[in-house]
Amino acid sequence: MRRDGSDDGGLGRCQLLDLLLARIGSDDVPASQAATGNGGGIVIRAAVPEDAASIAAIYAPHVLVGTVSFETEAPDARQMRGRMAASDGLYPWLVATIGTEGGVLAYACASAFHKREAYRFACETTVYVADAAQRQGAGRLLYEALIDTLRAQGFTQAIGAIALPNDSSIKLHEAVGFRRAGCTGRSGTRTGNGSMSGTGSARWPNLRLRRSSRSGLRMLV
């Protein structure tokens, strides 16, 4: 579904995301290759409900250890499936896999930046990579596909939130075009995760997806 409410002929959520991914690559490479990287080894596709368990498993360590996530309880597969369904075809969920039949290496998704209507063309983005798949290029391929999908949907701005310190996430965001937009100091406090207890700051990198020609819409930078 596009941000303006159109739906490309009533396609299902995953069908539409796959179509968008194919369109994104159509100007440069055949659609069959548009969602692959590393010689076809890593495939980017729309997430399906059956991916929820793998997505939850990738995310859980970031909740249980350290301060990368400001959540305090790791969602299980059922809860993750609910989050995916709540996107209602508007906010994309993508996964990176090894080949077309391989396991999930990483996932990326978008969500509403703010519930107020004036923020409707902005979204918040996130990406998580499995520990075993770090430094293989999956995160960047996935994030680039997410950003291109959001552009195709008509979003004008993508905003990330990074709990500090997290140099690797900062480098990934900068590599795909994000720029620092602000930082909130000591904005989150987590306790109860074993020996970990502390207060974290969050950096908000920003990426302008396109200029909007809509009357009355102002870019928030």
Rank of each mutant, 00 (worst) to 15 (best):
A47M: 07
P61E: 04
A60G: 09
W93V: 10
L217Y: 15
E124T: 06
R140C: 06
G194Q: 09
R186M: 10
E50C: 10
A22E: 01
L21N: 02
G160N: 07
R23N: 10
L207D: 00
A110I: 00
L19K: 11
M196L: 14
L21V: 00
L90D: 09
N166C: 05
G10E: 13
E101V: 07
Y107W: 01
H62N: 14
R190H: 11
L220A: 12
G103P: 14
L20I: 01
L217W: 15
Q33T: 14
G188Q: 12
I58R: 09
M84N: 09
T100H: 06
T67A: 05
K171E: 14
K171R: 13
R203P: 08
L207Y: 01
V48N: 12
D76K: 10
I42Q: 02
R180H: 15
P92E: 14
G9V: 03
L90C: 08
R120P: 04
R190D: 01
C183P: 04
S26K: 03
W204M: 05
R214G: 03
H62Y: 15
Y59K: 01
G66Q: 02
A60M: 03
L217T: 13
D88F: 11
A138G: 08
R186S: 13
D7V: 11
S187P: 11
G66P: 01
V43K: 12
A52F: 05
A112G: 05
E50D: 14
A108N: 01
L209V: 11
V48P: 10
S26A: 09
V65S: 05
G12P: 10
A181L: 07
F70N: 14
L172P: 12
I42G: 06
V95F: 05
Q79C: 07
R203M: 14
G103D: 07
N193T: 15
T100K: 02
T72Q: 02
C183M: 13
Y128C: 02
P165L: 02
R210W: 00
A181E: 00
G9L: 04
D167C: 06
G9I: 04
D76Q: 05
M1Y: 14
G5Q: 09
L150V: 10
R210V: 08
T149C: 13
Q136Y: 11
R218E: 14
R218Q: 15
T72M: 01
W204A: 03
I55R: 00
G185I: 13
T36Q: 09
W204T: 02
N193Q: 13
V65G: 00
V104N: 01
L64E: 07
G192Q: 03
A52Q: 04
D18Y: 05
K171W: 06
T100N: 04
